[in-house]
Computed example of a mutant assay.
Amino acid sequence: MNAPALNEQRVTDADPVASAQQQVMAAGQFAAARGWVPATSGNFSARVDADRIVVTRSGADKGALTPADLAVVNLREPLPPGLSAEAPLHVARYLADASIGAIFHVHSPAAALASRRNARHGVLTLEGWELQKAFAGVTSHLAVLNVPVFANSQDTVALAAEVEARLQNQADLAPGYLLAGHGLYAWGRTGRETLRHLEAFDVLLQLQLEWERNPL
């Protein structure tokens, strides 16, 4: 898995905003090159410090992001206009887990299809795939990892509350969740780790789809 060389400066560095912007811009390029964010879809964010994140504005081409396409947002203040409608989903995750350093959301075909196929179950379970070990903290292909699947909704404030309530009460979680017919949210402690999780998810979802069609 060859993620781009992200600027992983710590928040104690001279310009943590620029570091977070660089992580988001590099992630957008990475995802666009793989066809995961067609037609300006998707949204990306990275933590600046305990109270702030950088997040993509609405309608930006994720493969050609510039600092002007990104907003610095305080997690504990009302969101400013012009952000992606899904910004509340990012904010809720950062507030729920202080260890999260980046959240990337893509509309990859595998995620959209796998989420729809598993929507009625509300969860997609990964087990037995060696690539599961690409997720932070997973040391065996025998681990059982649950990927929650939520119904898609335009009310992202209510959806964020639903997501967080379930994430706090579900065991054996993978570092991501699916929105049915929509796509994948993944997170990690850094931008680099989050990109590794995204790439692993994409392959694992493709494998799972094929397995469900043709189980041995």
Rank of each mutant, 00 (worst) to 15 (best):
R57V: 08
H90N: 08
A64H: 14
A92H: 05
G63L: 10
A60D: 07
T66G: 08
G59E: 05
P88D: 03
P81S: 14
I53V: 15
E77H: 13
L79Y: 09
L70S: 02
A87F: 00
G82R: 02
A92S: 13
A85S: 10
L75R: 12
R52I: 10
A85W: 00
E86S: 00
A68G: 01
A71N: 10
V72F: 01
A71M: 13
Y94I: 05
P78W: 06
E86M: 00
E77L: 14
D69C: 06
A92F: 00
D51C: 09
L70R: 04
V55N: 05
V72D: 01
D69N: 13
S58M: 15
R52A: 10
I53S: 09
L83S: 12
R76W: 13
L70W: 04
L79K: 13
E77Y: 06
G63M: 07
V73E: 08
P80H: 05
R57F: 08
I53C: 10
N74S: 13
R52P: 11
A92I: 05
A92E: 05
R93T: 01
P88M: 05
D61L: 14
K62W: 04
A60N: 12
R93M: 12
G59N: 04
K62S: 03
L65P: 02
T66L: 11
G63F: 07
G59V: 06
P78S: 11
A64M: 11
A85D: 01
S84I: 01
E86V: 00
R52S: 11
P81D: 08
E77N: 11
S58K: 12
L89W: 00
K62Q: 03
R76L: 08
T66C: 03
R76D: 15
L65D: 07
A60G: 14
G63T: 06
T56H: 10
A71C: 12
P80T: 06
R57E: 05
A87D: 00
